[in-house]
Design a protein around this nucleic acid. Structure first.
Lengths: 211, 211
DNA sequence: AAAAAGTTTAACCAAATGGTTAATGGATAA
DNA sequence: TTATCCATTAACCATTTGGTTAAACTTTTT
C-alpha cells in the first residue's frame, strides 16, 4: 500500500470514528479527545489531518450523508409500477434507516442549526433525476386511472419519506406513545415494516380501476 | 403581586428564555451566559434559581414538553367518527407543530442521548386514555365495515403522527428534497396541510362500505 | 548513509465555561 | 429606625477544551 493510500486509510478510519462520536453527542457535545481515544490516536493527529473540529465534523458529516443518500437512492431505483416501486423501496430502505437512525437525528439537528452546512450538502447531494422519474411515472398512472388523481405527487413522495423515516428518527416520541399503549418499540417496528407499504398503496390506488 | 408570585414569575420568564436558547443550540451548545443575557439578568441568578445547567435544562424542557403535549392532546379530543377525528386533529395540530418545530427537534435529539430525561418525562406525560379511546373506536369502525380491517390500529396511530410531525421536524430533509424538485418548503407545507387528512382517510376507508 | 520529508507524541497554552463567593441593595417586619 | 431576609451583582475560580509547538521517530529520497 503506497503512502497516499495509507494516509487516506487513516483519514477514513478517523472519519468513521468521528461520525460515531458526533452521532452520539452532537457537534457541540462531542470532544476531540474522545474521538482521538476511540480512534486510538493522539489528539494532535486530529488537527494534523483535519485542522479543526469544524473541518473534521463537516468532512465526516458529508461523507456519511452521501453514503446514506446513495444507498437510499439505490433502494429507490427499481423498475415496475408505482406500487411495486413503493413496496420495493420500503423493503430495501428499512434496514438502512434503522442502521443509520442516529446519524439521521444528527442530520436533522445539525442542519437545522447550521445553514452553511446545509448549503454545502445541497451542492453535493442531488437526487432530482431519480425523483423526477418517479413523479412523472406517478402522473402517468394517475392519468391512466390506476391511481387516484386527488393525490398531489410531491405530497405522496414526502409522505413516503415521512412514513419511512419518522419511526426511526422519532424514536423518543414513538416509543413514548407505543409504550403507553403497552407495545414494545422494537415489536412495533416489525409490525410497521409489514404494513406500511400496503397503507400507502391503499391511499393512492383508484378503487374504481379495472384492468 | 406577592413575593411568591413574583418569584414564580421570574422563574417562568427564565424558563421561557432558556427554552429558546436550548432550542437554538441544543443542551451542549447552549451557554448560561447567553441565557442570562437574553433574559436580561445576571448569570449568577440562573444558579440562584436553578442550581445548575442540567437542572435548568430539565425544568424548562419538561415544562415546554408538557405544554405541547397538552395542546396536542386537546387537538385530539373531538367527538365524531374516526375520519372526522383525524381531520379535526390534523387541522388543529398543524399550527402547534409549526410553532414548536424547533422544540420538537430538541426533543428528539436530547431524549435520544439522555435516557434519564426520557424516563422522567414518561412519568409526567400520560396520554394513554385519549389514545386508547381512539384505538377502540377505530376497532369498532373496522368491525362495522366502515374502515378496512387490514390496518393495525397502532400502525395507523403512529402513521398519523409521522405524517403530522415529520414535515416540520424533518425540515432539512424535506426542504432538501422539495427544493431539488423546484418546490418551496413553505409552499409545500401549505399543500401538505390541505391533502394530508384525505391521504390518511383514503388509506383506511373500506371502499366496499355502503351505509 | 545522510538528508529530507512526513508522521506521531507529550507538554503546553489561551480562551471559554459552569459554577462559587462575598459584598451590596432593597424590601419587610420588629 | 433598625435588624433580618431575600435578591442581585461583580469578581473570581477550577476545569475543560480546542488548538499549538517543538521534539522524536519513521519513511522516503538522494
Amino acid at each position: 500500500m503506497d503512502k497516499m493510500k495509507k494516509k487516506l486509510n487513516i483519514e477514513n478510519h478517523i472519519i468513521e470514528i468521528a461520525a460515531d462520536v458526533f452521532e452520539e453527542k452532537g457537534f457541540a457535545g462531542a470532544r476531540m479527545q474522545q474521538i482521538a481515544d476511540q480512534a486510538k490516536i493522539n489528539k494532535s493527529l486530529l488537527h494534523y489531518y483535519f485542522r479543526s473540529k469544524e473541518k473534521l465534523f463537516e468532512k465526516s458529516f458529508i461523507i456519511i450523508a452521501n453514503r446514506i443518500f446513495a444507498k437510499l437512492g439505490q433502494a429507490f431505483n427499481f423498475s415496475g409500477s408505482i406500487s411495486e416501486k413503493i413496496t420495493n423501496f420500503l423493503e430495501n430502505s428499512q434496514y438502512i434507516l434503522w442502521k443509520n437512525r442516529n446519524f439521521l437525528i444528527l442530520f436533522i439537528n445539525e442542519l437545522n442549526q447550521n445553514e452553511e452546512l446545509l448549503k454545502k450538502l445541497m451542492d453535493e447531494i442531488n437526487m432530482s433525476q431519480e425523483l423526477n422519474i418517479f413523479l412523472s411515472q406517478l402522473k402517468e398512472e394517475q392519468e391512466k386511472g390506476i391511481l387516484r388523481n386527488d393525490v398531489e405527487p410531491i405530497v405522496l413522495l414526502v409522505n413516503i419519506i415521512s412514513l419511512s423515516v419518522f419511526p426511526y428518527v422519532g424514536k423518543p416520541i414513538i416509543s413514548q406513545i407505543v409504550e403507553q399503549l403497552n407495545y414494545d418499540y422494537e415489536d412495533y417496528l416489525e409490525i410497521h415494516k409489514k404494513q406500511i407499504a400496503q397503507f400507502i398503496i391503499n391511499s393512492i390506488k383508484n378503487p374504481d380501476y379495472k384492468d
